[in-house]
């Protein structure tokens, strides 16, 4: 009995599909395990500092002072009864900027900022962000580093 073309090709086609399916399966599981490893090493919870914290009573910051809280990485500016918190993390490469006569200066790569955190020199690409400041019910000032506010936004105390 002559063998038809269809009978010859059918098992080859089946093998081909099986091969293709198992390749996709193997490759897919490799990608999946790579992705799950990445998901594993990216922490879901961090153990560092909270983004929202209290910095004390408004009276701790007399008018006209600029006090840098280095551990919290914010500079508290008090002008009359206006209060604001400016980040002291350099926008260039994350060093802590110091307070200088003209504003802020970074010791790492020489970025300079004015009193409001605008870049006046050096490689910094962005101005220093201002953070939301609010008065907690117990009368203490709270800074939220999770929320940025436009520069020049003060809290009246």
């Amino acid at each position: 009995m002559p063998v038809t073309q269809k009978q010859v090709e059918e098992p080859v086609g089946r093998r081909r599909i099986l091969l293709w399916l198992s390749s996709v399966g193997l490759f897919g599981s490799a990608v999946l395990s790579a992705v799950s490893n990445l998901v594993f090493i990216k922490p879901r919870a961090t153990y560092g500092q909270p983004t929202r914290f209290s910095i004390g009573k408004p009276d701790d910051f007399p008018s006209g002072t600029r006090i840098s809280l280095d551990v919290k990485r914010v500079c508290v500016v008090r002008d009359g009864n206006k209060l604001a918190a400016i980040s002291t993390t350099c926008t260039h490469l994350g060093c802590i900027v110091g307070i200088s006569d003209t504003g802020f200066a970074c010791p790492c790569h020489g970025s300079r900022y004015d009193q409001d955190g605008n870049v006046t020199g050096g490689p910094a690409p962005k101005p220093l962000p201002w953070y939301k400041v609010s008065l907690a019910p117990n009368g203490e000032v709270e800074v939220d580093k999770g929320i940025q506010v436009p520069p020049g936004t003060y809290l009246n105390v």
């Binding site: 990445l38 090493i41 990216k42 922490p43 961090t46 153990y47 560092g48 500092q49 994350g94």
Partner: peptide, 16 residues
């Protein structure tokens, strides 16, 4: 930003 976060395991350089 993702690379930095995964490398440090936190927002800043610390125990992680």
């Amino acid at each position: 930003k993702e690379i930095q976060f995964v490398l440090l395991g936190d927002a800043t350089v610390g125990q992680e």
